[in-house]
Deep mutational scan, measured.
Amino acid sequence: MSGNGNAAATAEENSPKMRVIRVGTRKSQLARIQTDSVVATLKASYPGLQFEIIAMSTTGDKILDTALSKIGEKSLFTKELEHALEKNEVDLVVHSLKDLPTVLPPGFTIGAICKRENPHDAVVFHPKFVGKTLETLPEKSVVGTSSLRRAAQLQRKFPHLEFRSIRGNLNTRLRKLDEQQEFSAIILATAGLQRMGWHNRVGQILHPEECMYAVGQGALGVEVRAKDQDILDLVGVLHDPETLLRCIAERAFLRHLEGGCSVPVAVHTAMKDGQLYLTGGVWSLDGSDSIQETMQATIHVPAQHEDGPEDDPQLVGITARNIPRGPQLAAQNLGISLANLLLSKGAKNILDVARQLNDAH
């Protein structure tokens, strides 16, 4: 009898209710805020589980004197976190989706994509230029951005401005803007500013005609071990179906173009009346040469937790077992079709030249 009692006690200790789920994140304040929001949602869904947040620095956090596009290494903000995932030191990792490459290392998958916040870019102005827009900034004003995508589009749109690289986390960039006289304004992701509670610093939100956004911008991705079915089931509740389908289309477009950090590629997606609209573009580094096109596809946005595919093969690095396969494939095909259209119009040449120029500098 006593033996059975011990077995029952052991089973209770090993039951999922007692389990601590370890969540990996970057150390920056924004990353911690984003991770806290994901953990809060998981806690609400699984009140019996405990969650421990483990923060670590990544290569991208450490190399702050070089433009991201020049470092010449993929997975700048993800490699150390993936290493911890691989060694079973954490069970899942919360990322900004735009930091996750469209091809993940073997053994990993994006197990959830959370509801997207505003994906557009924002302009934050130096205190002396508050009330201005990019259009009304004085001639030769210097605007800071760490992104080739932003610089290429904005140089084309605002030729009277000069664009220079600015690195560091959000706090560091804002301090550089406010305390030094080098920059009249800087460009940042609206979602990051909003998550930090800095709505009052948003001086201008850039519309798609001015600057399309990065693939996955404004959404959070939760990376897990691809074979860890328990954790895949656990994080599945975080999937937002519309965000998922938009981001599958965007990531398929980028992957098929073979774009990345070192080339200016941008997108804009919208879901309306059962249609998914995808606009994508590529630019030369100075913005003088560009190709942009829009395509659409009829896609039914499923309700969360309709029964999805059981075999769960990944699409552009994403596993969404609780979302039907048909809409996911339709979104992926839309991204591939748009990429093929741009490639047929000469996108590869623009991107190759951009890559060579970026590598040469």
Rank of each mutant, 00 (worst) to 15 (best):
R22A: 10
R22K: 13
V23S: 02
T25Q: 03
T25C: 06
T25M: 07
K27I: 09
S28A: 07
Q29A: 12
Q29R: 13
I33E: 03
T35L: 06
T35R: 01
D36M: 14
S37M: 14
S37A: 14
V38I: 14
V38D: 03
T41C: 10
K43V: 15
K43E: 09
K43L: 08
K43I: 12
K43N: 11
S45C: 15
Y46T: 09
P47E: 01
P47C: 06
P47I: 04
G48A: 13
L49Q: 12
Q50R: 11
E52F: 11
I53A: 08
S57H: 04
T59L: 06
G60I: 01
G60V: 11
D61C: 00
D61K: 05
I63M: 13
I63C: 11
L64M: 09
D65F: 10
A67E: 01
A67P: 04
A67H: 04
A67N: 04
L68A: 09
I71A: 00
I71S: 10
E73M: 08
E73H: 15
E73G: 06
S75C: 15
S75T: 15
F77E: 01
T78R: 03
E80D: 14
L81E: 03
A84W: 06
A84K: 09
A84S: 10
A84Q: 06
E86D: 13
K87I: 13
N88L: 12
E89T: 10
E89Y: 13
V90M: 10
V90T: 07
D91P: 04
H95V: 09
S96Y: 03
L97N: 04
K98G: 01
K98Q: 02
D99N: 04
L100F: 02
T102Q: 07
V103T: 15
V103A: 07
P105T: 14
P106D: 12
P106R: 12
G107L: 09
T109L: 04
G111N: 02
G111C: 03
G111E: 03
G111A: 06
A112D: 04
I113R: 01
K115T: 12
R116A: 08
R116G: 06
N118G: 04
N118M: 11
H120V: 09
D121F: 01
V123N: 00
V123H: 03
V124H: 00
F125L: 11
F125D: 02
H126S: 14
H126C: 13
H126T: 08
P127V: 07
V130C: 14
K132S: 12
K132Q: 14
T136R: 11
T136S: 14
T136M: 13
P138T: 11
P138S: 11
K140H: 08
S141K: 08
V143C: 14
V143P: 03
T145A: 14
S147G: 00
R149K: 03
R150N: 00
A151L: 11
A152S: 07
Q153T: 05
Q155P: 10
Q155F: 11
R156I: 14
R156S: 13
R156H: 13
F158N: 13
P159I: 08
H160E: 12
G168K: 04
L170V: 11
L170A: 08
L170K: 04
T172K: 08
T172V: 06
R173W: 01
L177I: 07
L177K: 01
Q181C: 04
S184R: 12
I187T: 05
T190P: 04
A191V: 00
A191S: 07
Q194M: 15
M196T: 05
G197C: 13
G197P: 03
W198K: 11
R201C: 07
R201K: 09
G203C: 13
G203L: 02
Q204D: 04
I205F: 01
I205W: 00
I205A: 08
L206E: 01
H207N: 05
H207I: 08
E209D: 09
E210Q: 06
E210D: 09
E210W: 15
V215N: 00
G216P: 00
Q217L: 03
G218K: 01
L220Q: 01
L220S: 05
G221L: 05
G221T: 06
G221N: 00
V222R: 01
E223Q: 02
E223K: 01
V224P: 05
R225S: 08
R225C: 11
A226H: 12
K227M: 06
D228Y: 03
I231D: 12
I231W: 07
L232D: 05
H239I: 09
H239M: 05
D240C: 12
E242A: 14
L245M: 14
R246M: 09
C247M: 04
A249D: 04
A249P: 04
E250G: 02
F253Y: 13
H256L: 09
H256Q: 09
C261Y: 08
V265D: 02
V265R: 00
A266C: 02
V267N: 15
V267C: 14
G274K: 08
Q275C: 02
Q275L: 02
G280Y: 00
G281A: 12
V282L: 07
S284D: 04
D286G: 07
S288D: 14
S288P: 12
D289E: 09
D289L: 09
S290T: 04
S290Q: 00
Q292S: 14
E293Q: 15
E293P: 01
T294V: 13
A297F: 00
I299T: 14
H300Q: 11
V301M: 05
V301H: 03
P302L: 11
P302T: 14
A303V: 04
Q304D: 02
Q304V: 02
H305D: 14
E306D: 07
E306R: 12
E306V: 14
D307S: 08
D307W: 15
G308T: 08
P309L: 13
D312I: 02
Q314H: 15
L315E: 00
V316I: 10
G317Y: 07
G317R: 04
I318S: 10
R321M: 07
P327L: 05
A330I: 01
A331V: 04
A331S: 05
N333K: 14
G335D: 04
I336D: 00
I336A: 07
I336Y: 00
S337I: 11
S337K: 05
L338A: 15
A339T: 13
A339D: 06
A339C: 02
A339G: 15
N340W: 15
G346F: 06
K348T: 07
N349K: 13
I350L: 06
I350V: 13
D352R: 10
Q356L: 09
A360R: 05
